[in-house]
């Protein structure tokens, strides 16, 4: 029986974490204290049992769970129960959680997008790009006017009618100002640093390619479900306009977006 337990929810996925040490629990309690919407009293969809500083557990077939610098071994039973063993005393729980959650999200027709999400007039606008592309910068330039879902990782999940973007607890530099909110996706922008403002609407193939390049796919389960991710990405870019956005890190970028790119179209 593990000593600590905490329940929480990200993008409507309900988790229960049990651990033999308290660092992940402290992380989760701090998160829920700051963002109550991550709290969940619901029956968990996914249970994570986490053992720290385990060198070898008898009778347990150990397999490295992910290709990450952290030595996390374990198994995923029926896709619902993860038993993980960390060979160190401390590993960043947020990183492990993001990897596990990205595998489960695919089964719910969703994915984590390496993007900044901004909620404007009830709709979510996603700005995707690799590290250094300007996600945090574009969020910072809009702090006074709109809600920031995340400046680093947004969960995108298919609903009955459309795709919803959810805030995640996987922040970049703007952890203190992000909001635990969600909204239907209205447009996706792929950031390209440039010496002037400019945009180009992408056709379906180029939009799907850019989207796939920015979706978190970590771990063998993700690779096994790549066909499914492909179909979700393709469906999203058929429903939502996608643009390549060249920008300078200046506040006028938001005026440019509002003036030159009609919202959602």
């Amino acid at each position: 029986m593990l000593k600590y337990e905490e329940r929480f929810s990200i993008a409507k996925l309900n988790f229960c974490v049990n651990a033999d040490k308290d660092p992940p629990i402290r992380w989760l309690r701090e998160l829920k204290g700051r963002f109550p919407r991550y709290s969940s009293g619901r029956k968990p969809d996914i249970r994570i049992s986490l053992y720290y500083n385990i060198k070898k557990r008898r009778g347990f077939k150990q397999k490295k769970l992910f290709d990450t610098p952290y030595d996390v071994y374990g198994r995923i039973d029926n896709g619902l129960h993860v038993t993980a063993y960390a060979k160190r005393n401390y590993i960043p729980f947020g990183d492990i959680l993001r990897i596990l959650a990205c595998n489960f999200l695919i089964k719910r027709n969703g994915f984590f997008l390496h993007s900044c999400g901004v909620k404007i007039d009830g709709g979510a606008y996603l700005f995707a790009g690799p590290s250094g592309a300007g996600k945090t910068t574009i969020a910072k330039l809009n702090l006074k006017r709109n809600k920031i879902l995340s400046d680093e990782t947004v969960a995108v999940v298919k609903n009955q009618k459309d795709y919803n973007a959810y805030a995640t607890p996987f922040f970049g530099d703007l952890a203190k100002v992000t909001s635990d909110d969600n909204a239907p996706v209205k447009a996706v922008f792929f950031l390209k640093q440039s010496n002037r403002f400019g945009h180009k609407r992408l056709d379906t193939l180029r939009a799907a390619q850019a989207l796939l390049q920015n979706i978190f796919l970590i771990g063998n389960e993700c690779k096994d479900n790549l066909g499914r991710v492909f179909d979700i990405a393709l469906d999203l870019v058929k429903r939502v306009p996608a643009y390549e956005l060249g920008f300078l890190p200046k506040e006028q970028i938001w005026r440019y977006i509002e003036k030159e790119i009609s919202p959602g179209g």
Partner: peptide, 22 residues
Amino acid sequence: IPWRIIDGEALVVDPEKSLIYP
């Protein structure tokens, strides 16, 4: 190797090398 035909063109993904070919 997952692939899809999109408007007459194709997108091919190599999961091992994390490469996407249009």
